[in-house]
Write a protein that binds this DNA or RNA. Structure first.
Length: 280
DNA sequence: AAAAGCCCCTGGACGC
DNA sequence: TGCGTCCAGGGGCTTT
């Protein structure tokens, strides 16, 4: 979509998680998309005129790119998977008509996603972005950074890692998986990461595990649970490589003889191996 | 300051 | 077939 202009925006309702900005559609009308980028869990469309469109998918948000008007998308190249998109009047909330004749649909069953316009020039000062922590795949994520931010915190590691102000973009799946790979208990005090040799070693493992999990997941095209899909209708396969997520009651992949358990932290499920993730 | 709990919303899975 | 309960890739707000 980079290089294409927005020929029209149709809003099929007045809000998603939040009401759309006033003049949302008209401000985007005719804007050429200069580039698409990402910060934390936000997809950002940057227009040539300096307008930014931040898009968060929430839990069930999904973009589908259709290269022809109507229901079906023609393959980009011969032999490519042909994706037929069935219109969903109940949950197709936003439709972008693009200058080259294609359309982009935003579908979101639970409407926890949202979109908002902002000025690219002052992105760093925008409330959505201002407090975000480091990108997990950047060189900013280091054991020293982890130790610094964890220092003195009594909150559980799981909570610490889900906090977007610390590391931006980690979600429930990848936090669970990273903690497993690092051999760290989800309930351990975060502050321990900044104490002593064991803490330093743990921070080191955690850092490497976060990177490793995300890289593996990216290679696999992400995790496709339920109807989670790519913009071309394809799906990821990282769910087949989960060590702990969604594996309650199953045997640990480390052959430690234990079974994966589930507990609730912050109202979300944490999956872990009680034996492999015993202490820092 | 930190943690627990509830809320937003819809739908699928499962038990009775 | 229907109804109730629990659960879900996120995260904000209020209460303790």
């Amino acid at each position: 979509m980079e290089g294409a202009a927005i020929a029209g925006v149709t809003l099929n309702r007045a809000d998603l998680r939040f009401p759309f900005d006033r003049d949302f559609a008209s401000r985007l009308h005719g804007q050429r998309i200069h580039r698409l980028s990402r910060r934390a869990k936000y997809i950002v469309a940057e227009t040539e005129s300096g307008l930014g469109l931040a898009m968060h998918l929430g839990m069930t948000g999904r973009f589908t790119i259709l290269n022809q008007p109507g229901n079906g998308a023609a393959p980009h190249t011969p032999g490519e998977f042909y994706y037929s998109y069935e219109a969903d009047p109940r949950h197709d909330h936003v439709v972008f008509a693009m200058s080259h004749g294609g359309t982009i649909r935003y579908n979101d069953v639970r409407r926890f996603g949202y979109m908002t316009l902002f000025e690219l020039a002052s992105m760093g000062k925008h409330p959505l972005f201002q407090t975000l922590g480091v990108e997990p795949l950047s060189e900013d994520l280091t054991p020293a950074y982890i130790a610094l931010r964890a220092k003195g915190k009594t909150q559980p590691l799981k909570t610490f890692l889900l906090d977007q102000r610390i590391v931006a973009g980690l979600g429930n799946i990848y936090v669970c998986e990273a903690l497993f790979r690092a051999g760290l208990p989800p309930g351990a005090e975060s502050g321990s990461l900044s104490i002593g040799k064991k803490g330093a070693a743990a921070a080191e493992r955690l850092c490497a595990s976060i990177e490793g999990v995300l890289e593996d997941a990216l290679r696999a095209g992400g995790s496709s649970l339920r109807d989670y899909r790519h913009a071309d209708g394809g799906s990821g396969s990282f769910q087949e490589s989960f060590d702990v997520y969604g594996r309650e009651g199953e045997t640990c992949n480390r052959d430690c003889g234990s079974v994966i358990e589930r507990k609730v932290q912050q109202g979300r499920s944490t999956f872990y191996c009680p034996k492999c993730q015993r202490k820092i």
